[in-house]
Computed example of a mutant assay.
Amino acid sequence: MSVVSVVSLASTGFKEIRGKHLHYSKFWNVNDSVSNKIKLSSRNGMFLLYTPAFLAGFSSFWLFPDEGLRFFYVKSALTIHFFKRIFEVLFIHKYSASMILDTAIPVTLSYFISTVTMIYAQHLTQGYPEPPIELTYPGIVLFLIGIIGNFYHHYLLSKLRSKNDKEYKIPRGGLFDLVTCPHYLFEILGFWGVSFISQTLYSFSFAFGTTIYLLGRSYATRRWYLSKFEDFPKNVKALVPFVF
């Protein structure tokens, strides 16, 4: 599963760079005909994406009780992460497009299977010696920085539009003045935080694969903004300030 996670996420990231996008957000109808495909409202599609993974994290407290403090932190971090996403879907995000069912189903399965596998991998560590280098508490700090930064920049994105406004605008404020996708940057930090807490091969593999995918997604997003807005600042990078 560690190999599958890295290969699938990295492959999807490279596809984003080549222009073959997952059909959601601003890329929902780019380059491909979607007129004959089943569409969901963006709100319903995003809700579908995150709910099974949240339920997997939430149910793990009942399925695997009393298996140590590290396991408790891993379960808590994953459950909080997907609860935040559902909260944003319902109360923060503003929507302008649809989501293709053909995209929603594999992404939903990806989040769900990854969450289940990360939790089960942690369960399998029970009875083994603790890692020689303790990264749990640096991981908690990194996770909190990631989830707070991600939420803040999602909030800034939501403020770009009024209630009935469907047009995309150039994001401003926070790290948007330096990079196109700071919300992706903080999401990466959050998953590396979970990896540090967990310290399993699978959590590391998932964080690494997610990093490659979001590198590709952010690169494609910057390219999209440059194509749509003549006044988009050329010095604004894709993901990492002053670097990429």
Rank of each mutant, 00 (worst) to 15 (best):
1 M>L: 14
2 S>D: 10
3 V>N: 11
5 S>H: 13
5 S>Y: 15
5 S>N: 14
11 S>R: 02
13 G>W: 15
13 G>M: 03
18 R>L: 15
18 R>E: 15
25 S>K: 09
26 K>Y: 00
28 W>A: 08
29 N>M: 04
30 V>P: 02
35 S>T: 06
35 S>F: 00
36 N>G: 14
39 K>F: 00
41 S>T: 13
42 S>N: 12
43 R>C: 14
44 N>Y: 05
46 M>S: 06
49 L>C: 02
49 L>G: 07
56 A>P: 11
56 A>C: 15
57 G>E: 07
64 F>K: 14
66 D>H: 00
69 L>E: 12
71 F>G: 03
73 Y>T: 11
74 V>N: 02
74 V>I: 08
75 K>S: 10
79 T>I: 09
84 K>L: 02
85 R>W: 07
89 V>C: 14
89 V>Y: 15
91 F>H: 07
95 Y>K: 08
97 A>N: 10
99 M>Y: 00
100 I>Y: 00
102 D>V: 05
106 P>F: 14
106 P>H: 14
107 V>W: 01
111 Y>T: 09
114 S>M: 10
114 S>Q: 13
115 T>M: 05
116 V>T: 10
117 T>L: 13
118 M>L: 11
120 Y>Q: 11
121 A>P: 03
123 H>T: 13
126 Q>W: 15
127 G>E: 11
128 Y>L: 15
128 Y>E: 15
128 Y>P: 02
135 L>T: 07
136 T>C: 03
142 L>M: 10
143 F>G: 03
144 L>A: 08
146 G>K: 00
146 G>L: 01
151 F>N: 01
160 L>R: 07
163 K>G: 08
164 N>D: 12
168 Y>K: 09
169 K>W: 06
170 I>C: 04
170 I>E: 01
172 R>L: 12
172 R>V: 09
178 L>Y: 13
178 L>G: 06
179 V>N: 07
180 T>Y: 02
180 T>L: 09
182 P>E: 07
183 H>P: 06
185 L>M: 09
186 F>K: 07
192 W>H: 01
193 G>C: 01
195 S>F: 02
196 F>A: 00
196 F>M: 01
202 Y>V: 05
204 F>I: 11
206 F>M: 04
212 I>N: 06
213 Y>K: 00
215 L>K: 04
215 L>S: 08
216 G>Y: 15
218 S>M: 05
219 Y>E: 13
221 T>K: 11
226 L>T: 03
229 F>W: 01
231 D>M: 00
232 F>K: 10
234 K>S: 09
235 N>H: 03
237 K>V: 04
239 L>G: 01
240 V>W: 12
242 F>S: 11
